[in-house]
Design a protein around this nucleic acid. Sequence first.
DNA 1: TGATACAGGACTAAAATGGTCCCCAATTAA
DNA 2: TTAATTGGGGACCATTTTAGTCCTGTATCA
Lengths: 168, 168
Amino acid sequence: MLKLSKMTDYAAVVMARIAREPDSAHAAIDLAESVQLPHPTVSKTLKALVRAGLLESRRGALGGYRLARPASQITASDIISAIEGPVAVTECSHADGDCELVNTCGVADNWQRVSYAISELLGSVTLAHLASSAPLRMPVQLPIQAISLYGDDEPPPMATAADSTGKR
Amino acid sequence: MLKLSKMTDYAAVVMARIAREPDSAHAAIDLAESVQLPHPTVSKTLKALVRAGLLESRRGALGGYRLARPASQITASDIISAIEGPVAVTECSHADGDCELVNTCGVADNWQRVSYAISELLGSVTLAHLASSAPLRMPVQLPIQAISLYGDDEPPPMATAADSTGKR
DNA sequence: TGATACAGGACTAAAATGGTCCCCAATTAA
DNA sequence: TTAATTGGGGACCATTTTAGTCCTGTATCA
Ligand code: FES
Ligand code: FES
């Protein structure tokens, strides 16, 4: 399902909550209640967000959490990364040469591009967008032309069999 | 990491293998070898792909798997869906009203749009693209302008240093 | 000083994932 | 007809991930 974990989901929800009232500090327990989730869980999520630098925290009475920077400068990608690590669609997309199939699959390159495109897409959605109650307006153009792919009318490139003769 | 499961990864690799030689049937065991993966696992993956209608199979001697339709008509989204179910970023993106937080989070709507955008993106990448040894060419424009995201009063994502607005 | 509220991490239970195996059904060749 | 080949469908298990709880410590402020 290509879906993000619940924790990430929570993170988004909580961040949005905070973003809607950015000028006051929010205690974990208050957030938990307003979001209808167990306190410990929310707390855990908040800690992760602090560690990722998306939130600032303050202890003690009057303490709580607040955004580390304006909601318009926090992206969906940031939030996701904070909880589940960098956005990458496949293992090999890591580009860290971990995958041992690199030689046999030949899909890595293109997957990586797709991954990048998604990453860009997520990077173009800000917390301000997410938090806004109004649905995101359209249309818009994403900074994706820089990515890859090609026109839809163009015939498929296909490496063809000629390519399979020599295994790289 | 927003990543797909290994099985999906395998699926893509195997599909690409088949796509490169679309005119002959490929036995599971041969594919397994050429891809350097355990036979049972590959076999399992193939079965799933058949069930999803992306491959056709034939039993008996001379049997094997082949594409159910041209590689240019099979999308990354198809492959992912075949293995992990429909592409959806969050639970609530399902739009099936399962999530109980709908009332408290208010993020659902916009997440859903993001989800849709990703889905479109993946739908625009075909197996032919993936299988091609040459990196996808650029530039291209994805059919994403139709999607959504922000309007005109909102500052373009991070591009500007104008932290300002934040929220209206 | 004492109440508040975050920090960090250990820990558990439950679920998803990856992977194997076995037996059956279909197809073809001898 | 029979034998060999090849996929179909599941059951099954081991391992890892995930979600969630809890406890102990530390900073802040009235
Ligand atoms: S599966 Fe890792 S490089 Fe292709
Ligand atoms: S978390 Fe499900 S609707 Fe927002």
